[in-house]
């Protein structure tokens, strides 16, 4: 059994106070501690972005990959080492934007990886530009005239690719539900994606 303390690193989170990523981090550490998976058998692949910065705060085997590539790296790990539990942490930009082709490939393959998307509808580490999930019409730094594209909705398009995969949406604010869904995603056999609805405390004002 792993304790939450053992899953911590010497580094304290660097997110903005009040960031919903704290809730995802806490939920993940609790779920890993409660699970029977030993830390040395856990590999977390982090995307680039605010959520990906979780890499320094969780003590497991990890890859802090490139923007958009976390799912592809995770698939390679799982293909070569099916004995490992492989988790992906990324944001809406990396998973649904830069890395969309890899998400589609992973869903088609029903790759046994667990993807957690910290979806705050913005590119926040780069200070607030539109992402693939930004609502139509929203004015952001890169779209001051308003977003003209339809947003991508993971829970709609992923099951259309492969109805065998597990996809859920949950609000980070509902902590009990979030923690329950994290555990469910980890226990699922096959591809699982949990879309965690978050609010960006620094740049989310643009969306309201």
């Amino acid at each position: 059994m792993t304790t939450i303390a053992e899953l911590r690193t010497p580094h304290a989170p660097t997110w903005c106070p009040g960031c919903d990523d704290f809730l995802l981090l806490a939920g993940l550490q609790q779920a890993l501690a409660a699970s029977a998976i030993p830390t040395e058998k856990t590999v977390i692949v982090y995307d680039i972005g605010c959520a990906g910065n979780m890499a320094d705060f969780v003590h497991t085997y990890a890859v802090h990959s490139l923007h958009g590539r976390s799912i592809a790296v995770a698939m390679g790990i799982k293909l070569f080492r099916p004995d490992l539990t492989v988790i992906v942490i990324g944001g809406d930009g990396g998973i649904y934007g830069e890395g969309l082709n890899h998400l589609v490939a992973a869903a088609r393959a029903n790759s046994d990886i667990k993807v957690f998307v910290s979806n705050n509808y913005l590119y926040s580490l780069t200070t607030g530009q539109t992402s693939p999930t930004t609502p139509k019409g929203a004015k952001t730094k890169s779209t001051p005239l308003g977003v003209t594209n339809e947003p991508l909705v993971a829970s709609r398009f992923i099951p259309a690719i492969n109805d065998q995969v597990w996809v859920q949406k949950v609000s980070a604010k509902n902590i009990a539900e979030l923690n329950g869904e994290i555990k469910e995603a980890l226990n699922h056999q096959g591809f699982a994606l949990l879309d965690v609805d978050e609010n960006c405390v620094s740049f989310g004002k643009q969306l309201r």
Binding site: V63, A72, V73, A74, G76, I77, L79, R81
Partner: peptide
Amino acid sequence: SIASGAAFAGA
């Protein structure tokens, strides 16, 4: 990217 993941895992 997939190959880099496999290589990280020992391939």
